[in-house]
Design a protein around this nucleic acid. Structure first.
Lengths: 121, 121
DNA sequence: TTATCATATGATCATTTATTAATATGAAAA
DNA sequence: TTTTCATATTAATAAATGATCATATGATAA
């Protein structure tokens, strides 16, 4: 129990613990990327879109019908997901089909789902 | 390629796909819980706090020192995490120690990290 | 070409959220 | 009891975000 230096306006009580953990922390840039990644899953609309795309390739208007969302709203979310390279699309005439573009996405969804189902009985 | 009913103001092109996926969709309530769960990981401060706690039990002021955050900010985030039963605490005199309160959390962090490290070379 | 359809984009608005400063609580030390 | 220290809480503010409306793009069909 040593009293360490001040960095953020308050005392540090366990300097050894802080030092040890500090060595195991990711760089700030990485934490930011991680948070940005999880933020993609932090909205019910995007969760539904991703879940749906994990089941089938779908076009925008099918997603609208499936989820009861405005076309514009779906398009905006798809743009975010595409920009994060979590989703990709292909054009066939006027129709644009979306699919998941990353092997990890379904795993993340399922891991989260497992947690939810255990937490809320 | 059938043209289906209208629900959200636009046409549904692939009715069979939509029907099939609809049967595999989680209920809205569940999508909401999922999003709320991932939202916890969608902020750099919380990511750092959770990562730190996955390495050691820590008190509030140690977290402040480690992360360079104001005590108030740390406390706010810990409150959110505790309320979501992702983190728990114990009191020892004036000091309150926090730990992860869920086996899944570290797994989620690591899965996300794996994704990040593959994406950003 | 013009009209139509599927999708994308831009601007705006309302809501949520993270941080801060100030203050309160609650336990130990003096 | 009074003071000090660790943490929590409240209120205010600024920034981020998701939905919507209106409009634009881009491809096919007439």
């Amino acid at each position: 129990m040593e009293i360490g230096d001040i960095d953020c306006g308050i005392r540090m009580i366990h300097e050894d613990t802080v030092d040890s953990v500090k060595r195991q922390m990711p760089k700030k840039e990485i934490s930011g990327w991680l948070a940005d990644f999880f933020k993609l899953f932090g909205d019910p609309s995007r969760i539904s879109i991703l879940w749906a795309l994990s089941k089938a390739e779908m076009c925008v208007c099918d997603l609208c019908a499936l989820l009861g969302m405005k076309q514009s709203a779906v398009s905006h979310q798809l743009k975010i997901l595409k920009h994060s390279r979590i989703v990709k699309n292909r054009r066939d005439g006027k129709v644009i089909y979306y699919t998941l573009d990353d092997d990890h996405i379904e795993g993340v969804l399922k891991l989260g789902m497992r947690h939810i189902l255990e937490e809320k009985p």
